[in-house]
């Protein structure tokens, strides 16, 4: 079995956007959740002899994530880059990604990180699957190819599930699935000698009102780094009393 796997990755912001701030390798990084999805895809492709396409959307200054994906093992990379994609919300992003994935057919697997480190919606993977009319297994932590059928192992809360999946299908990958391996220096050099493709709105055969701000039913009106409030409290009493009080407190807060 030889797969074509498409890994969707995002250049996630490291800092809250300020006026005039450009998204580049200083201010953004490959979304750590997508890194895990890509690493799992690379493993599957290596064991089955498949190939991987890394797909992302963003300005040209974000092409570093595509190169990084190629250094991690992706065979080719495509960046959806067009001013008219700017300010897309998760729906408009899914519309653009789905159009690009259609153009990349035939494909077998489309993988997404479970969520992003800079917006945490977890919507893009499922929405793209819907737009493509693909079956979706969320929280996948491993794949298995058994002679004639494809298995996806899923992890959610206390449950482990195994799905038999008809390909092509989409998957969001559980953060605990795999530890992305270190990148060998030679692979960075090789990745940077490859060419990546830049696709515009026209390449995707979409209308301008389907993407960007116009195609986005939701919009972010402000974004800032959250100040993490910490509260320190001392619990008095013997060890047993302290343990009891502690358990009571976290129960009251709904933590357990």
């Amino acid at each position: 079995m030889s797969f074509h796997c498409i890994a969707c990755i995002k250049a996630a912001a490291l800092k809250a956007p300020a006026k005039g701030m450009k998204k580049n390798s200083d201010t953004a990084q490959m979304n750590p959740f997508d890194r895990i999805a890509l690493a799992l895809a690379v493993n599957v492709a290596r064991s089955c002899g498949g190939m991987i396409t890394a797909l992302s959307m963003g300005p040209a200054s974000c092409s570093f994530v595509i190169y990084e994906a190629m250094a991690m093992g992706a065979d080719k990379g495509i960046l959806l880059s067009d001013r008219r994609f700017a300010d897309s919300d998760t729906l408009a992003t899914s519309t653009a990604l789905a159009a690009a994935i259609k153009r990349l057919a035939p494909f077998d697997l489309v993988v997404f990180g479970a969520r992003t480190s800079d917006s945490d919606t977890g919507q893009v993977g499922p929405q793209t699957a819907v737009a493509l009319d693909l079956p979706l297994v969320s929280g996948t932590f491993d794949f298995e190819w058994k002679n004639s059928f494809f298995l996806a192992h899923r992890k959610m809360d206390e449950f482990r599930e195994t799905y038999e999946v008809t390909l092509p299908a989409a998957f969001t990958i559980h953060p605990s699935s795999i530890t992305p391996p270190d990148i060998a220096l030679e692979n960075i050099e090789t990745a940077w000698t490859k060419k990546i493709a830049f696709w515009s709105l026209e390449d995707l055969e979409l209308r301008a009102d389907q993407v960007g701000l116009e195609g986005s039913p939701t919009r972010v009106i402000s974004q800032k780094m959250a100040a993490r409030k910490r509260h320190c409290e001392f619990i008095e009493g013997s060890v047993e009393e302290q343990a009891e009080k502690f358990v009571r407190k976290i129960k009251e807060k709904g933590i357990i």
Binding site: S25, D26, S63, F64, Y67, E68, A71, D182, I183, L185, I188, E189, A191, W192
Partner: peptide, 14 residues
Amino acid sequence: SEKHRAIRKAVRSF
């Protein structure tokens, strides 16, 4: 360049 930054990032991460 971005390539050199990627090298820095990869080495630092390791």
